[in-house]
Amino acid sequence: MTAPAVLEEAAAESAGSLTVIKARHPGRWIAGAVVAVLLAMAVNALVTNPAWDWPVVGAYLFHPSVLHAVLFTVELTALGIVLGFLLGTVLALMRLSRVPLLASAAWGYVWLFRSVPLILQLLFWYNLAALYKQISFGVPFGPAFFSVDSMDLIGPVTAAALGLALHQAAYAAEIVRGGFLSVDPGQLEAAAALGIPRARQIFRIQLPQAMRSIVPAAGNEIIGLVKGTSVVYIMALPELFYQVQVIYNRNGRVIAMLLVAAIWYLVLTTVLSAAQYYVERRFGRGLARALPPTPLQRVRGILTVRRAARRQRPARGGRR
């Protein structure tokens, strides 16, 4: 029978009497089963092996000294990201400016701070007092109004925050600059044609559109920095990684304490990933015809459909 003949025959029958049978996918079931077994094995290996020391993990997970360390890690991350992105935005605007010296200065900054490893930069800041004993405020190259001891101005915590922020700023600058470049030049032209003031063009028209490509990259950076703060341990600051080291040096439960740290890093990055999802939605306004539902809305949607289907089922049976 030729294809048109089949179609005609199908059309001849009443459309409602034809039932669609979904295709079977045995391959998918097999792959799913393999993964399920592997997962079960992994869980089993984690739970049953006493070497993981789960009771010790439990005992130290919410230990005050660990919680303090988590808080300090959060503080360092927040300082690094906020200061880093503020300075990074300034650098990005400098890089895009029409003044050649500003653009090259920003380029030089990014070049320098991206090239030197973070751990080295941190040690430089930590040892700043050895390089410059006094820091003076006054006329450049002229008389100083007052001076302070470098030690007093830049303690280890400031040095760590500063080091992280300045390093982060170099990466943030490139991310923000990329965001600005991703906005259609026509947008600026339209804003200029409407006579919108320059600063308003940047912050009301360009930046919100740039955010769409800035946010995913910034999310990466923030999550990177949460873990990057562990580098600060070389300055003997009580952030999470340093603190668990202190504890396992005392009690000898290395694996358990590393697990404690790992669990907290997981928690922090999970919270940040969720936050990123909602921030992205916020800046996605107007870019899709309708925003996709959030995971929560999706779950609620599925439940409603299920419930509705369950209510309908007896009725359908009755019709038969």
Binding site: D184, G186, Q187, E189, A190, A191, A192, A193, L194, G195, I196, P197, R198, I205, P208, Q209, F283, R285, G286, L287
Partner: peptide
């Protein structure tokens, strides 16, 4: 910019602000 406010301009590709 101030003088431009006396001149309206309509672009071929609209250039509306998509986030507003």
């Amino acid at each position: 910019l101030r003088r431009r406010t006396q001149i309206g301009f309509v672009f071929q590709n609209f250039h509306l602000f998509p986030h507003l």
